[in-house]
């Protein structure tokens, strides 16, 4: 164990890469997830079909195959760029996150009461105005918890970036194991680090939930309802 801890600075660097990749792919997957999820519910069949095809073709191959493809096969296609390993990793995992996130977004939007769409229309709001000001803010109360779970998975997905040479915590753990031969200690530390990261991520998402407009509205009504019921019980006594 002590031998492993002597490599703490290498480990810290690897951890930092994992955190950075995780942050980029979680944030990077959000716009794609919202757009693909919203398009899945379009009234236009062609649009619906296109987004379904995009989502399915990202999800169908394993993320690792997609990663190898972008890292090694794509540069061989004429006119296509050669991405650095870390860029390739972020692009692939963010796309993968967007494809899974799209289903969470779709389910969140579908959970918003039909009458809310009708009210937007009756007030003259355009589709985009209604979506951004009324539907999405309410859907977020469903989407954010779902996305929190996805984000925790995404942190764990980042381990595969070591396969294309990105020096994340997984990569350096393997390196330290090669140096110290202390396999058990290395993998215990590694597991603890992933555990810590996913816990922190969960805490952050729970904090984020508190800030959502619908949660805030419901919280303040609950507070008021409690106050009135206290007053009622006091006056009864």
């Amino acid at each position: 164990m002590r031998a492993v801890l002597e490599y703490w600075s290498v480990l810290a660097h690897g951890l930092w890469v994992t955190v950075w990749v995780s942050f980029c792919i979680i944030v990077g997957s959000i716009p794609g997830a919202v757009i693909l999820g919203a398009l899945r519910l379009s009234e236009n069949r062609a649009v619906r079909l296109t987004s379904t095809i995009i989502i399915e073709s990202i999800r169908a191959p394993s993320a690792l195959v997609l990663l190898y493809w972008v890292a090694y096969a794509l540069p061989l296609v004429p006119g296509m760029p050669r991405l650095s390993p870390i860029t390739a990793a972020i692009v692939v995992l963010a796309l993968d996150g967007a494809a899974y996130g799209a289903e969470i977004v779709r389910a969140g939007i579908e959970a918003v009461h039909r009458g809310q769409f009708d009210a937007c229309h009756a007030l003259g709001l355009s589709k985009i105005q209604g979506f951004s000001r009324v539907i999405l803010p309410q859907a977020l109360s469903q989407i954010v918890p779902g996305f929190g779970g996805l984000a925790r998975s995404m942190i764990k997905w980042t381990a595969i970036v070591s396969f294309i040479g990105v020096q994340d915590v997984m990569y350096v753990a393997n390196y330290i194991r090669g140096q110290t031969f202390d396999t058990v200690a290395v993998f215990c530390v590694l597991a603890a680090l992933y555990w810590l990261l996913t816990i922190l991520c969960g805490v952050m998402f729970r904090g984020l939930e508190q800030l959502l407009p619908l949660n805030r509205a419901l919280r303040s009504s609950r507070v008021e309802l409690n106050l009135t019921s206290n007053l009622v019980s006091e006056s009864v006594q």
């Binding site: 009461h113 009458g115 809310q116 009708d118 009210a119 229309h121 009756a122 007030l123 003259g124 709001l125 355009s126 105005q129 000001r133 009324v134 803010p137 309410q138 407009p213 619908l214 805030r216 509205a217 419901l218």
Partner: peptide, 30 residues
């Protein structure tokens, strides 16, 4: 469509907005 307004059986107020925000959303955006 702007010349028509509608009130629904289930009210359909926007639950994430205050009463005032419910009333000013359409005038400010539309």
């Amino acid at each position: 469509r702007r010349r028509c307004g509608m009130v629904f059986q289930q009210y359909n107020l926007f639950p994430h907005l205050t009463v005032l925000q419910n009333l000013i959303l359409a005038p400010t955006t539309v």
